[in-house]
Nucleic acid binder design. Structure first.
Lengths: 195, 195
DNA sequence: GTCTATAAGCCGATAGAC
DNA sequence: GTCTATCGGCTTATAGAC
């Protein structure tokens, strides 16, 4: 029985999301995605031009939720600005405790596609990370941080490092240290000796 | 004509090194490695138990050269300790300018194998990163940096972040910012307000 | 130690029916 | 919009000759 097109399409993306993130891009076949979505492979090809198309769509659905998670951790935190920045890393540390956590999906996807810089997923991943960075720069600028773009960039670098190190070592202390470093940098900038 | 066993083995590892790094782990077949090494696939299986075995050996050959590159950039730099730490990031920025640069091989490999935490390549990658971290901690401790292990950890987190961000954005300014942040953290620790 | 040959199965993508 | 069926090619790994 034909379902609504949008519904089937979403079901496929949800299945792709789970499998791409869990097993990786190359290791996940369209057969497996179709089976998990409860449709045939032919239906997947009706809704998506190719596997590469589906990869980019998978990442696109993670953009907004990930950004909102960072924003929620920051907004719900109390204390000074450095303490609230550290709260973002504390939030990340919590998600990492989940059994299904397997690093940053954006980072792992561009890592697999490193030899295809023109791949559509690259643009999606880069744009997502820049959205996070721009949001941080805005928050810092609103609170009188000098060179807010530079500080925001440095904090995002520590976030990237935390994701990578956590996946490699499976040791939550790396996220704690990244949060310490971020708080140090933000606090340092506020005390008037930026850069 | 049979060559020396060690020589054939090395030839295979060199070919694997090139292809695994350029195209990724899953995207590289043993057929391609054998062809590039100028041997048959059967010979590859004579020297290595499996593809997983070869992956771990590939990363193991990158451990020492990568560490030595970091050490050379640090040792050849002049100026204060923060400036010499920044020189490491300047060195990384140079390698990134190369056309064949495709991120950190350790990071990309564990990213692809994220669902196999028991894979031998995981241990090799983790051990390599910890060697870099331990070396930095030693250098910091020798120069009177308080909490040298913490500062070394934070600098390696910035290195990881620089690798990931550079691959994603292909913008060298991320490495510069990472170097700025690292120099800031090291300088801050020396001025007596560590952590 | 290295070869030829092949097993046994999975891959992305497409043809054509309904 | 979704199905069944299949193409041509690639994958890891192994058998057995020399």
């Amino acid at each position: 029985m034909p379902r609504s097109g949008a519904k089937t399409r979403d079901t496929i993306i949800v299945a792709a999301n789970t499998l791409f993130y869990r097993f990786g891009i190359k290791a996940t076949s369209l057969d497996a995605i179709a089976e998990r979505a409860g449709v045939t492979k032919r239906t997947v090809y009706y809704h998506f031009r190719s596997k590469d198309d589906l990869i980019a769509e998978y990442l696109a659905t993670r953009d907004q939720p990930n950004l909102e998670a960072f924003q929620a951790w920051f907004e719900q935190a109390r204390g000074t600005l450095p303490e609230r920045v550290r709260a973002i890393f504390d939030g990340v540390a919590e998600t990492i405790g989940h059994a299904r956590w397997r690093g940053c999906g954006f980072q792992r996807t561009v890592g697999e596609l490193a030899n295809k810089p023109g791949h559509p997923a690259f643009k999606v991943a880069s744009a997502h990370k820049k959205r996070v960075e721009s949001w941080l720069a805005y928050e810092f600028q609103q609170r009188g941080v000098p060179h807010p773009e530079d500080i925001a960039c440095q904090v995002t670098l520590l976030l990237e490092g935390a994701f990578a190190a956590m996946l490699m070592h499976r040791d939550r202390r790396y996220v704690t240290q990244a949060g310490n470093a971020a708080a140090c940098i933000v606090g340092h900038s506020l005390s008037g000796r930026s850069r």
